[in-house]
Design a protein around this nucleic acid. Structure first.
Length: 477
RNA sequence: GCCUCAAUAGCUCAGUUGGUUAGAGCAACGGACUGUUAAUCCGUAGGUCCAAGGUUCGAGUCCUUGUUGAGGCGCCA
């Protein structure tokens, strides 16, 4: 009797007539009689019926929004329509009273921007608790997918001494006194005296280390925090985000695309199967939001229908060259609606990607074989000597979710590329060694974890799918 | 980094052509309520109109600069 039952478990197998002890936070207290109690175990609340006549007034007053309570009682079939069972309270204890005069949250709809400022309380809302339960489910599914397929989880370093990862601006890691750092004779900051005896940064990618592991363990993946000091002000970018990077020996670009598609579909399916209540809540939330919008601004499908559609249909696969040709014969191109030029050799702009995904194919699209001059040095050159075996997976509403490639395993080609792109070869000697000594074809990609959470939860800003977002000018909590 | 828009009560917003005492809904607080599901009903209180400067007899309203936020773009995942 004294043992607490979690609400999710109680609701999954309710025993009418049994006594239960539950603990949680008051989501609503209606009619001085009904508590909607949630303990975080799931999206659904347990309705508690309070015996108003036999409960002290002082105690009743403390049962307020987001107060923490412990309740013992008997489970009965509900007389109300909103739930099958409810708990008749026999003993109520206030574990943590709330002071509503000062509490910033209210039992009503609040904007995401406001809740973002109250990140220490926002997880108590229906929306954020669902988002973060799904985020957990997704990260578990990532490990399950790879473990079941025989991949090894590689812990790539967070602090890196390599500045040749080539994925963006880096955050410096140093213990030097920033006011008066030691100087060399030439006047430059002397990082030889820094903690690691050299200049170090936070990682922007675990890919190069992933390649080291793949050439020994065969199939590996990394899943860890990644840092980019880019001044990116969008709803799809974070300065600190989590990235999943599989790297597989003997895979070519087609195997790589197959893996990416299978992996993403697995993740979506896992959440559909294991988090139906949270998805249902988020789906309803979006429909609610869109009620007041014009028809053309609404999504064509609900959240759950969209997710099902994605896993039931093949992703469209198209070469960069074909994509350019398609775009050049598109209606918006002929009408001059695109802001940016469409020309072979230039990168596809967001407006072009959106047309391909949302208008032309209406499903995820994998674009492959990009011009080599707009891609990274390590991507494998194709036979045409103009393109590389690079791929981007584009999702509706979000854009690039995955970027990957087959890696250049031919030493001479790789060296030539490094020289052409003006990268210091000494920095990468260990990377070149992988080609010199027992190398092999291999491929991999990076999946932006938060972008996946964004797609699956239907949230619109990436800052609302990571507990404590770090963006330019913002590192609170 | 660039472009656009916004900032008024705890929250979400309205505020006419520059004009007297800045409004509403919700939340809070006080009260009522034994079947609620965004509970409902009655009442009370709540304002440095983002900041600084300027124009004007007079600025929430117009101008300049700044700050913060949102959306879009670029960079990418």
């Amino acid at each position: 009797m004294a043992k607490r039952t979690e609400i999710k478990n109680l609701l999954a197998a309710p025993k009418v007539g049994e006594k239960y002890l539950v603990k949680g936070w008051v989501r609503a207290f209606r009619s001085n009689r009904f508590i909607a109690l949630n303990d975080g175990s799931g999206a659904n609340n347990l309705q508690i019926v309070v015996d108003t006549d036999n409960t002290a007034e002082e105690l009743l007053k403390q049962i307020s929004f987001h107060a923490c309570v412990s309740i013992e009682g008997t489970l009965v079939e509900s007389q109300g329509a909103g739930q099958a069972v409810e708990l008749l309270a026999e003993k109520i204890e206030i574990l943590g009273a709330n002071n509503l005069e000062e509490y910033p949250l209210q039992p009503k709809k609040q904007t995401m921007e406001y809740l973002r400022e109250k990140a220490h309380f926002r997880m108590r809302t229906n929306t954020f608790s669902s988002v973060f339960r799904i985020r957990h489910g997704l990260s578990y599914a990532v490990h399950k997918y790879y473990n079941d397929k025989g991949y090894y989880y590689l812990h790539s370093p967070i602090i890196t001494g390599s500045d040749a990862e080539g994925a963006g601006e880096m955050f410096r890691v140093t213990t030097l006194d920033v006011d008066k750092p030691p100087r060399t004779e030439e006047g430059a900051v002397d990082f030889g005296q820094d903690f690691f005896g050299k200049s170090t940064n936070l990682t922007v990618s675990g890919q190069l280390q992933g390649e080291i592991a793949a050439l020994a363990l065969g199939k590996v993946y990394t899943f860890g925090p990644t840092f980019r000091a880019e001044n990116s002000n969008t709803s799809r970018h974070l300065a600190e985000f989590w990235m999943i990077e599989p790297e597989v020996a003997f895979n070519d670009i087609v195997d790589n695309m197959d893996l990416a598609e299978d992996f993403v579909k697995y993740l979506i399916n896992y959440i559909l199967e294991n988090y139906p209540d949270d998805l249902k809540f988020l789906d309803g939330r979006i429909q609610d939001l869109e009620k007041n919008m014009k028809k053309e601004e609404r999504r064509e499908m609900g959240l759950i229908d969209t997710l099902k559609f994605v896993i039931e249909n093949d992703f469209e696969r198209i070469t960069y060259t074909d994509a350019i040709n398609l775009l050049r014969s598109s209606k918006p191109y002929k009408k001059g609606k695109f802001k940016y030029e469409i020309e072979w050799g230039k990168d596809l702009q967001a407006e072009h990607e959106r047309w391909l995904v949302e208008k032309k194919f209406k499903k995820p699209v994998i674009v492959v074989d990009y011009p080599k001059d707009i891609k990274a040095f390590y991507m494998r050159e194709n036979e045409d000597e103009k393109t590389v075996a690079a791929m981007d997976v584009l999702f509706p509403g979000i854009g690039e979710v995955i970027g990957g490639s087959q890696r250049e395993e031919r030493l001479d080609k790789l060296k030539k590329r490094i020289k052409e792109m003006d990268i210091h070869e000494e920095e990468l000697s260990w990377y070149l060694d992988l080609r010199k000594f027992g190398g092999c074809p291999h491929a991999g990609f990076g999946l932006g974890f938060e972008r996946m959470v964004l797609f699956i939860t239907g949230m619109s800003n990436i800052r609302d799918v990571i507990p404590f977002p770090r963006t330019p000018g913002n590192a609170d909590f």
